[in-house]
Amino acid sequence: MKEIALEAHNLTVSYHRKPVLWNIDFKIPAGEIIGIMGPNGAGKSTLLKSIMGLVPASSGYVRIFNQNLKTQRKKIAYVPQRQSVDWDFPARVIDVVKMGRYTHTGLFRRFKPMDYEKAKSALEKVGMLAFAERQIAQLSGGQQQRVFLARALAQEAELYILDEPFAGVDAATEEALIKIIRDLKSQGKTMVVVHHDLQTCREYFSHLVFINARLVASGPTQEVFTEKNLASTYGGKLTLLSKMAELVAEKEFPVREKGSSEFKKSS
């Protein structure tokens, strides 16, 4: 078996007290392009945030290259949804991309010429070098997405986690983005992409993870892209599961009891 880039073990995550992911359990092989698929509200973004340590897990854990997340920060680059920031912020394109170097330079050390070069070459890869000095407020949606990807590229990670990079971008941008993603794969990087278009998912991804509040299936695309899996992912929510989630939030019960976890914290 190939090296495991990302493992979610028995992950349960709540958002505003309400459990949105139950016992998610999957392994992602290194060097592949993996799609995370599921309907709106399935918890895809929450899963990514939990992987990045932005939302605490109620139970379970995430391992990156078989290590604790804390030791692997430099190796994992996150591309949030582009709507998650205010693009009217006073910054130039290059300023945003330079943030990708922070995991290497820290927040206080001066940038070396090499860091500038890497930021610029990241911009070049996404075809935005000519826009380096442009204000981010002047960018179109597709350009914003390219800048976000460039910021992750500047980090020179091994594992890239992209939240809906194709949402609301034009066809040309989607094509350019998938080309970059494939290039990275051919360099041995692991690309995890949240996606919701079933039309293109077989073409884009060699592995799929289907989730809808719980894990439906995960594995190589040919094996898991089945009618049965699609039906249970997209065939509406599990009513009882979502009823229980609402009850947990309403009654303010914990979603996991203390000391019940079989997993011992060690890494």
């Binding site: 945030k49 990045m52 340590g53 932005l54 804390k70 920060r73 994992i76 996150y78 949030p80 998650s84 920031v85 205010d86 912020f89 910054a91 300023d95 945003v96 943030m99 922070y102 995991t103 927040l107 206080f108 910021r151 980090q155």
Partner: peptide
Amino acid sequence: RAFKALCFDKDFIAAGG
């Protein structure tokens, strides 16, 4: 730099550890 990043994209720098 820290404040700028905090104001623009809190999640990204949190993801950076």
